[in-house]
């Protein structure tokens, strides 16, 4: 390891602040690039589930209509 102590690694004799801040910003953006699509996928899944329920309830409503229509 080039630096002999963790503390020196942090400071990198003066330039540490720049190196670690750019590291932090890049990390945040890259993690965002992973989390955002996963959350989008979740939302799409929920949306599809919603539609399936909606469709199922609509079909169910239609069956009940057809079922009691001939009696009346």
């Amino acid at each position: 390891m080039y630096f002999d102590s963790l503390q020196q690694l942090m400071s990198m004799n003066g330039h540490g602040i720049y190196v670690w801040s750019s590291f932090a910003i890049s990390a945040v953006v890259m993690i965002g690039l992973i989390v955002k699509p996963l959350r989008q996928k979740q939302a799409a899944m929920k949306n599809i589930e919603l539609q399936i329920k909606l469709q199922a309830s609509k079909q169910a409503a239609k069956q009940t209509e057809v079922a009691d229509a001939p009696h009346s």
């Binding site: 990198m12 003066g14 330039h15 190196v19």
Partner: peptide, 15 residues
């Protein structure tokens, strides 16, 4: 960040 040697002119900011 940890093992590579720093640049002669720029020091560690080259990382």
């Amino acid at each position: 960040l940890a093992f590579a040697p720093p640049d002669a002119k720029q020091g560690n900011s080259f990382r």
